[in-house]
Design a protein around this nucleic acid. Structure first.
Lengths: 189, 189
DNA sequence: GCCACCTACTGAACTTGTTGACTAGGTCGA
DNA sequence: TCGACCTAGTCAACAAGTTCAGTAGGTGGC
């Protein structure tokens, strides 16, 4: 029931197609609300029939037509109601952490997975940094935060950034620990 | 399909009832794998019929009977297969972040939510710290990490700890930013 | 000139996850 | 002795999420 709110918050940036939303989610919303494109398309249909968004079809040449969605007043209202209300605690699902919990029986494989995650987090940091620079648009952060119309998307981006940086640090720590234990097991003093 | 792996990783600590698992999840696994008790009970039944766990019923006086589950060899194998394999990227769902993304239209309410989240994260840090002290059992971290039989659960605990500390920092930052903007809007120089 | 990826979706089947209510006795504090 | 919370679950209904496949033309590189 709450994917809609993430969609509406994204539509505050202006009208977008399902496809646009999928890209936007992939680029930054995924940090706090993961979903597949299929979910978006389905949810957008429902939201339209609930009157939260309206679609306008844009015919395109040499490309499939697209439907651009934008928020209605009802949508804005629903979003405001959501932001006012209480929020469920963070729900995380991370298979790597499950694997780490069981790592002691399979240290090598898990080590490889941690290394991969570390690289992946580093790549994500680079992408977020680029997005950040783009959002700031030449202003300093301080200028931006006091003068920009909206700071919400910037604040969520900061959360994603620090989450991934934290990930990198934690991965490094795990690697050190597992490596040392590996050495100890190979040559137990 | 992957809740089972979280359950099996938890059962490495020894046999447990559905109720015990629910508590264990609540205390620490929830950081990387959220689930409701109902999910656990249902999944345990399925795992039993798949031969990954065995149950032994313990009759109790003055208390409902319980079924203690433990890993079978098949379960251990399945877990090893999982830890070896590739892992899906982290999936996060956080309503507060959705609200923050839309915060610019409703700063006061969102500010309150952020404050609440901050307090909640601080409480969680305190609980994790207690768990950590308990796990260490008087040893220094270094001693523990080189000598303990299993370090997996400790490493995941560290991830939870740093996640919540990061949460607290981010909340504080958001509050500062929103407060300053609030002041600016009330008295626009 | 072929392969791979991009735009922009749609559909159906299936698996997971959530919510609420119910059972039933025990313990603990005011 | 009353209400609140703890142990230890079960059941049913519903909502949400995942997976796989398909459509169909366009663009870009080697």
């Amino acid at each position: 029931m709450s994917l809609r709110n993430a969609v509406m918050a994204t539509l505050l940036d202006g009208e977008a197609s399902g496809y646009d939303l999928a890209k936007a989610f992939d680029a930054s919303v995924a940090n706090f609300w993961m979903c597949t494109p299929q979910q978006l398309y389905r949810e957008l249909d429902r939201m339209e029939s609930d009157g939260l968004v309206v679609a306008r079809t844009v015919e395109q040449e040499r490309r499939p037509n697209k439907r651009l969605f934008s928020l209605t007043d009802r949508g804005l209202e629903a979003l405001a109601e959501f932001t006012a209300g209480p929020h469920k605690p963070t729900a995380i699902r991370d298979e790597l952490l499950v694997a780490v919990m069981a790592a002691d029986d399979n240290a090598e494989a898990v080590t490889a997975s941690i290394q991969e995650r570390k690289r992946w987090a580093e790549a994500k940091i680079a992408r977020y940094d680029r997005l950040r620079v783009k959002l700031l648009g030449g202003r300093t952060e301080d200028e931006y935060l006091t003068t920009a119309e909206r700071v919400g998307p910037y604040l969520t981006l900061l959360r994603g950034l620090s989450f991934e940086r934290d990930n990198v640090r934690w991965c490094a720590r795990c690697l050190t620990v597992l490596e040392r234990r590996g050495a100890r097991l190979d040559a137990p003093a």
